[in-house]
Amino acid sequence: MDEEYDVIVLGTGLTECILSGIMSVNGKKVLHMDRNPYYGGESSSITPLEELYKRFQLLEGPPESMGRGRDWNVDLIPKFLMANGQLVKMLLYTEVTRYLDFKVVEGSFVYKGGKIYKVPSTETEALASNLMGMFEKRRFRKFLVFVANFDENDPKTFEGVDPQTTSMRDVYRKFDLGQDVIDFTGHALALYRTDDYLDQPCLETVNRIKLYSESLARYGKSPYLYPLYGLGELPQGFARLSAIYGGTYMLNKPVDDIIMENGKVVGVKSEGEVARCKQLICDPSYIPDRVRKAGQVIRIICILSHPIKNTNDANSCQIIIPQNQVNRKSDIYVCMISYAHNVAAQGKYIAIASTTVETTDPEKEVEPALELLEPIDQKFVAISDLYEPIDDGCESQVFCSCSYDATTHFETTCNDIKDIYKRMAGTAFDFENMKRKQNDVFGEAEQ
């Protein structure tokens, strides 16, 4: 370990593993360490099931009705991949897709007046949907046509809207959309967690709705994908990429100290040895004095023996409960997957309800979601602090990732990755940087 590296990475969460992969592909010498004996950090999948019970201090362990412990891979952080989103792009560019198998999530649902409705995925579904009345549908269709044709580089498509100054509230007004449709559009399509976006320039919202539609167009059922064997497969896929390009991995490796000289990182000390480096990437748990708390998320993992009611017996789905429907500031989400994804025993389902904490009784906040899941065989409640770095790391060369937020997709995580890359490399992130180099010394032969 007593060696000189360009970059040392602490923690094998998804953000850290993707950055480690990119740095290795770009010719950097990388050492990647984790104090845990497993990959994934906060974003790991726990197996066998006995391990999950232990982690949540349920000492009696799983009953026999849960089947074989080894058949379970339970995500600690519930997220899906947008089919046309940035993480899929990263997987394709790096060819990490060859280590993973994905399934399309069967449906996306939205909560309205105590019931759940399928988010329409085709024009026919939209016309048949009970989510809105006849005239509302016509106006909504006009709005969707506007979004589909919108091109930020072609003012002819703006229809009198200025993407940089017109607020989204004004765009909704222009198409005369009612409150329910606005809730549905902002939260189930643009996937905002709160209503803060309404008074911001509309460009980002329009682009988010386009991303949803384009992702949906790829597979038809929903815009989301999920990897077989759980999300823990993602960091491992990128760790393989890093290793192929010469990255060194050490799990179960305690970090005793991060060594600084004149305010700059110069190395990491572990078990009496020092590895030197020019730059350091880590998750917040490794540098508690360089991060601040930015809120909390509650996630309740529920094991069920039945599909969720009114989802047409889907073996995977997402449910969004827009905040307006339950008098909150932030949406509540449910991600459900099952034995069909090799993450649970035969006939079992895993539904994870999550939201940003707003009160001193977080469990009560998630109740509307839990009511949709009854009866629940077993619950595991996790309340996590969200951390963000206190500075950009440019001076110390210590670059810290943000905690995983309450969103049900990876777009915010990818933004964090691109942002850290830019601060480390001094140049904007470009997907081309992730391409495997042809015929290089570490390149794998085609399968």
Rank of each mutant, 00 (worst) to 15 (best):
D313H: 13
K118D: 05
I22V: 07
F143H: 04
E395G: 09
E261Q: 07
T408I: 06
I259R: 15
V255G: 04
T122A: 09
Y212I: 09
S213E: 08
M66G: 02
V326E: 10
Y421P: 02
S242W: 01
Y339F: 02
D101E: 04
V357L: 07
N207K: 03
D75H: 06
E3W: 05
V274E: 06
M33L: 12
A243T: 03
Q438Y: 12
Y38F: 06
C17P: 01
L31T: 12
T12P: 02
K435N: 07
T427P: 11
G160I: 11
C335Y: 06
H409P: 07
V326S: 02
G246M: 07
I337G: 14
C402Y: 08
R276S: 00
N327L: 01
G186C: 03
K115E: 07
Y38D: 00
V366A: 10
Q346M: 07
E42A: 00
N433K: 04
V88I: 08
V266F: 14
V265E: 02
K309Y: 07
C400L: 13
D199F: 15
A294V: 12
G272K: 04
G247M: 03
F410G: 00
Y421K: 13
I182S: 10
V343F: 15
I22N: 00
Y172Q: 12
D391G: 08
D34M: 04
V30P: 04
G113T: 06
T47E: 10
L241Y: 15
S222M: 13
N415T: 09
Q378K: 00
A345P: 11
A351I: 14
V381D: 13
K422M: 13
C394P: 02
Q86L: 14
N153S: 12
C414L: 12
V291L: 05
F146S: 10
T194L: 06
K264H: 15
F431H: 05
K142F: 01
L251R: 05
S215D: 04
R328H: 12
Q325L: 09
K174I: 14
K435Q: 12
G85D: 10
V326L: 13
I300P: 01
R240E: 15
G295C: 08
L373W: 02
I258N: 07
S316D: 14
R292E: 08
S44L: 05
E367H: 13
D2A: 05
Y172C: 07
E16G: 05
Y212R: 01
D154N: 09
R218K: 12
R55T: 11
I281N: 14
L127W: 05
E152L: 14
S316M: 13
P227M: 15
Y38L: 04
K329N: 06
V147T: 00
L280D: 02
D162N: 09
P120Q: 00
V206A: 05
K174N: 00
E214S: 02
M23T: 06
D71Q: 09
E374H: 13
P389Y: 14
E358Q: 03
R208L: 06
D195G: 06
T15R: 09
N262K: 06
D71V: 10
V266W: 13
C317R: 02
F399N: 02
N433Q: 13
V268I: 14
P375S: 05
V291S: 12
I244T: 08
E3D: 06
H32N: 00
C317D: 04
Q397H: 07
T413D: 04
D199E: 00
V9T: 04
K221S: 14
Y5C: 02
